[in-house]
Simulated assay, not measured.
Amino acid sequence: MIRAALLMWAAGFAAILCWTLLWPMDRPLPQGDAIICLGAGIDTAGRIDAASTKRAERCAELARAGAAPTVIFTGGPRRPGLSTSAAGMAAIANGAGMGGALAVLENASYSTLQNALFSLELVPRTARLILVTEAFHLPRSWASFKAMGARDLALYPSERLRQNDAGRPKWGMLLRESLAIWFNAGRIVAWRIGGALGVDDTTRAAWLR
Rank of each mutant, 00 (worst) to 15 (best):
A180W: 08
L129C: 07
R168G: 01
F183E: 13
K170M: 15
T126V: 05
R140L: 04
T133E: 05
L29Q: 09
N164S: 09
L153S: 05
K170F: 01
G12V: 09
G95P: 04
A10F: 13
A91Q: 14
Q114N: 05
L29C: 10
G39W: 01
L17G: 03
V199S: 05
T70R: 15
V199N: 01
R79I: 03
R125V: 12
G95Q: 02
A4G: 05
I2C: 03
S119D: 07
A45R: 15
D49V: 03
K54M: 10
R55I: 13
M89H: 03
E61C: 04
C59D: 01
T133Y: 02
W23L: 09
E134R: 03
H137V: 00
A40N: 15
G66N: 13
A65T: 06
D49C: 09
E177M: 13
G32L: 11
A56Y: 06
A166W: 01
F136I: 01
P124D: 07
C59N: 05
N94R: 15
R160D: 00
W207Y: 06
A190D: 02
L155Q: 05
F145I: 03
S178D: 04
A60H: 10
A185Q: 13
M173H: 12
P124N: 07
S109I: 05
M1S: 15
V199C: 11
L113R: 11
F145C: 09
A86N: 09
A40M: 06
W191T: 01
P30F: 10
Y156T: 04
L122G: 06
I36Y: 01
I92C: 10
R125W: 00
P77S: 12
L155M: 14
G195W: 08
R55E: 08
A196M: 15
T126R: 12
D165L: 13
L17A: 15
R58I: 03
L62Y: 12
R162K: 07
A180M: 09
G81E: 11
S178N: 02
D201F: 01
M25D: 09
I35C: 08
G46N: 11
D43I: 00
P30H: 08
G194Q: 06
E177Q: 15
K146E: 10
R27W: 00
R151A: 14
D152S: 12
T133K: 00
G32P: 04
A185G: 13
E134K: 01
F118V: 03
M8C: 14
S85N: 12
G46E: 11
A87K: 12
L179C: 12
G95S: 04
A60I: 08
I193A: 15
M89R: 06
A67L: 10
P124C: 08
G41E: 14
A11G: 13
T70A: 11
I36S: 00
P169S: 08
V199T: 13
L122S: 05
G149E: 10
M1I: 07
G88D: 06
D165M: 07
P139F: 08
A67I: 01
L117Y: 02
G81C: 10
A90C: 11
A135E: 03
A96E: 12
A101L: 08
R162Q: 11
P69N: 12
M25A: 14
A91Y: 03
A108H: 09
Y156L: 04
V104L: 14
F13G: 00
D26Y: 02
L6I: 14
A51D: 08
R58S: 02
G100Y: 11
D152V: 05
A56F: 10
E134F: 14
D152Q: 14
R27Q: 14
G100K: 09
L17H: 08
A11W: 12
I2F: 13
